[in-house]
Design a binder for these strands. Structure first.
Lengths: 147, 147
DNA sequence: ACGCCTGACTTGGTGAATCCAACTTACTGA
DNA sequence: TCAGTAAGTTGGATTCACCAAGTCAGGCGT
């Protein structure tokens, strides 16, 4: 069973469906590492995840189409696989950004290293938030949710 | 111990700190329900969470300042407590919105009921995404992350 | 007054997910 | 040939989540 103890891929609520794929322990941190450029098993391993769990998560992320497993060879080393983000994987960036913004604001830490998001073309700092149809930002406190 | 088997409230990475508070099973779904207006134990219970886990999560959310527990009495019923979002709790809305958007886009379901976010003043539909300092939207595919 | 009902939990036992240490496999470079 | 490293796998312990059942308090019908 690929998703035991999950909310189900067929749930009506899209938050439940997302969490079925992304909600298990370590999964979102692996995506964060991938956005920071990590691709190999040993690199992901450094965040402290047990190696058996890492193997299981990487397999699941490949199966679900968030990571692509590719043969890789740097010279002088033997061939092995690397894990790179697919389009579906890359499109989780707003989730990572929203988590980072909330953590920076609401869970202070002496060791905090704030995470920054920049425009790829001109390097302007970016923030995550709500925008209307014309591309204008709207304060989160002014937003209503409807099912 | 309030956060066993977590990434730690003192982690340098804000994503890890957020997930220490928000990452356990059911927690983000309880926030979603709160945004949809639910406040009482029995209402939260309807999403399928075991009652012992619900009691533990509500207590943790109150302790961490995301929910406020308030005495509540509707006429003809006895007094009981309701759980309402604090400012810190309300500011998780971008996380919920990002999860909802990804789920709607990447985890299709026959039973899907898309989630909508509206401007509280004029009802315009809103989307979650990156904006620059001037409040203009930037495509997620053009965004760089830096540690 | 008495028992019943409902909401909000608590308890005990079970299974699943995670953790940890140790082991394996495949290749490489000395 | 031998040590070293990357990428796993395996076995056993621990923590977490699940489920059914029980508790407790206040209100209501009779």
């Amino acid at each position: 069973m690929p998703h035991p103890r999950s909310y189900g891929l067929e749930a009506a609520c899209p938050v439940s469906r997302s969490l079925t794929v992304l909600g298990r322990r370590w999964t979102l941190l692996l995506l964060r590492e991938a956005f920071l450029g990590k691709t190999r098993f040993a690199e992901f391993s450094r965040i402290g995840i047990p190696s058996d769990v890492l193997a299981a998560r990487l397999q699941a992320l490949v199966d679900e189409g968030l990571f692509e497993r590719r043969p890789y060879q740097s010279d002088g080393e033997r061939a092995r696989d690397e894990y790179v983000l697919t389009d579906a994987g890359r499109s989780t960036l707003p989730i990572i950004a929203a988590l980072a913004a909330w953590g920076d604001e609401h869970v202070p830490s002496a060791a905090a290293e704030p995470m920054r998001f920049l425009d790829g073309e001109d390097g302007r700092p970016l923030t995550i938030g709500f925008t209307d149809g014309a591309g204008r930002a709207v304060e989160a406190s002014d937003v209503l949710i409807t099912r």
